[in-house]
């Protein structure tokens, strides 16, 4: 069986600055991969390349056995390659329920329907209720997104991604700015959702990454330093020098 996501030889420059050089990486079905690295290492840029928001200068991305290099972001999302953004990217003026329904409708293939709106809305609403109940958010769903707390917005942001029922979910610092308890709750929601969903998790919080991931990839200055189990990565000298340094000691 080929891996779910296969990245080979990705390179990306912004002008003279090399943000990514020769990144190769594979993610298996159902696994949780942690992606760590200091600020500016190129983690978000890698997500952007994988999800089609940026075109790489070189290299190839395969998803579920097929090349996706020529597909725009929305087509990749439709295949189940779903991401969140480093900043919570929600629709602040819309209600919480409408935010989630936007994702649910698209997942059901009704995103652009005009006729038969009533059934589409009913279907989406049912799904949104399920998601909201599952999430444990103490919210009815009618409140404006902008009025929610930051932590709740991040959970809603995640729920939107989950509403798409992804095969691979790329989470860009979903726990940044959250309290320990909120972060744990958010990760529980992810895990509970679907055990077959593969997960790539960017986080700066070492405890979270080492505690929740099967494997860890470390990036530094646009290169992939090391990929391996948490123990192996923790023990790696190059990683310690580049990144963990004082943190690991």
């Amino acid at each position: 069986m080929s891996p779910l996501l296969e990245i080979a030889g990705i390179g990306k420059s912004f002008g003279a600055f090399r943000a990514l050089s020769d990144i190769s990486l594979a993610v298996e079905e159902g696994e949780t991969l942690g992606l760590i690295g200091p600020n500016g290492a190129g983690k978000t840029t890698l997500f952007n390349v994988v999800t089609g928001f940026l075109r790489p200068d070189s290299g190839a991305v395969r998803f579920a056995g097929a090349p996706v290099d020529r597909l725009p972001p929305e087509k990749r999302a439709a295949l189940g390659l779903v991401r969140t953004f480093q900043k919570a990217m929600v629709f602040p003026a819309l209600s919480l329920r409408e935010n989630l329904a936007m994702a649910a409708r698209q997942r059901a293939g009704h995103g652009l329907r005009w006729l038969g709106a009533r059934t589409c809305h009913a279907e989406a609403d049912a799904k949104v209720e399920r998601l909201l109940a599952e999430s444990g958010l103490p919210r009815g769903g009618g409140e404006r997104m902008a009025d929610l707390s930051y932590g709740e917005q991040r959970i809603a942001d995640l729920l939107m991604a989950l509403a798409l029922e992804p095969r691979l979910l790329l989470l860009d610092e979903p726990t940044a700015g959250l309290s320990q308890a909120e972060a744990e709750r958010l990760l529980r929601i992810v895990r509970r959702h679907d055990s077959r969903t593969a997960l790539v998790l960017i986080a700066h919080d070492i405890d979270i990454v080492f505690g929740h991931c099967d494997r860890i990839a470390v990036m530094h200055l646009g290169r992939l330093l090391r990929t391996g189990t948490p123990q192996a990565v923790r023990a790696d000298a190059a990683v310690r020098a580049a990144y963990l340094g004082s943190l690991a000691d």
Partner: peptide, 18 residues
Amino acid sequence: RALVGAREQPLRMSALGY
């Protein structure tokens, strides 16, 4: 609704598959 979404957060709409 999608039209409103594309006005408010076009990037997110693409990420949602729109």
